[in-house]
């Protein structure tokens, strides 16, 4: 699997086109029309940022590695393609996804530790490991036991040696990959496309300017460079970027896909500024409390 993403269940069952994904989502919302109308939820990206913060809060004291955290994020995203969020207690889903991801990524955590950390982080009402155990069945069942996740980190490691990325470029690309879990991209594109996008952005953006924080404006200039690759070849840009653009133009990599990924990331960085944790927390608490989902 690791070697053959193309044969994987991720490729076969969990990679969608944008219209397909929109359709799945609409079907889900239509089936719960009343709930959807009654309880507004935040923008999906804001929600993802919120989930990520919550997961990291839990993961840090447990010493959970980034890849397991990423796997948990993908599980949560897959799960909410199948199950309407207003029918669930997100805190329980997050804790369970992390518990399951740790086992799958070979860094298991005891279920009691997960429960204790979840209670510590969220002061949640679930106080029994059986809740997590039961939710685990639901999670696995909704994902059809397809638990192996192909992450872009491995592709990045290969690209790093091929293009001799600097330490800074590599860590910027790594953090862009971390960011992509906050978008729909894990459900839309192959991991190597994500890795190429991340590397490209990292090289264009030059990590020296203003630390590792990526900004929308910078990404926009990257898009322009990509436009050159699409046109065949470009000129006028610096050597390093040019080399990448040429390689992209000559490779079999789907440049449209890289452009799409870049745009998705731009809109994430744009919307990030308006993120407010409290809004997410309150809106979730509202349907959870009202429907007694924390019981």
């Amino acid at each position: 699997m690791a070697s053959s993403y193309w044969e994987s269940t991720q490729k076969k069952f969990w990679t969608f086109t944008k219209p397909q994904l929109a359709l799945e989502r609409k079907r889900l919302e239509d089936s719960e029309r009343n709930l959807v109308n009654m309880y507004p939820v935040p923008d999906r990206r804001h929600l993802s940022i919120y989930f990520y913060h919550q997961l990291s809060k839990m993961a840090r004291p447990l010493g959970v590695r980034q890849q397991a955290l990423a796997t948990a994020q993908v599980y949560v995203r897959r799960f909410y393609v199948k199950v309407e969020i207003r029918r669930t207690n997100p805190a329980l889903v997050l804790a369970t996804a992390l518990y399951l991801a740790c086992k799958m990524e070979e860094c298991p955590q005891h279920i009691r530790m997960i429960l204790a950390e979840a209670r510590h982080c969220w002061d949640t009402a679930f106080n029994d490991i059986s809740k997590i155990g039961e939710c685990e069945f639901t999670l696995i069942s909704e994902m059809n036991s397809q638990l192996i996740i192909h992450h872009p980190y491995r592709s990045l490691a290969e690209l790093q040696s091929q293009f001799q990325l600097t330490q800074e470029e590599n860590s910027l690309a790594w953090s862009i990959i971390n960011d992509h879990y906050l978008t729909e991209l894990p459900l839309l594109h192959a991991p190597h496309v994500i890795a190429i996008t991340a590397m490209f952005l990292a090289v264009v953006l030059k990590p020296t300017q203003g630390g590792l924080q990526v900004h929308a404006a910078g990404v926009a200039s990257a898009l322009q460079a990509l436009g050159n690759a699409r046109g065949g070849a470009g000129q006028g840009t610096q050597n390093r970027v040019q080399k990448l653009v040429d390689w992209l133009a000559e490779s079999t990599v789907d440049i449209e896909a890289v452009v799409e990924c870049t745009q998705e990331l731009i809109s994430l960085y744009e919307i990030w500024d308006s993120y407010a944790e409290k809004t997410c927390k309150d809106q979730i608490a509202k349907f959870v409390k009202a429907r007694g989902l924390d019981k």
């Binding site: 699997m1 994987s8 269940t9 518990y99 399951l100 086992k103 799958m104 298991p108 279920i111 490991i129 059986s130 809740k131 997590i132 155990g133 039961e134 685990e136 069945f137 696995i140 059809n144 036991s145 397809q146 638990l147 192996i148």
Partner: peptide, 17 residues
Amino acid sequence: YSGISQSAIREMALCTE
């Protein structure tokens, strides 16, 4: 429910794949 053993998780995931 007390959590599924890691080896069962591995086997389920690998068998599916």
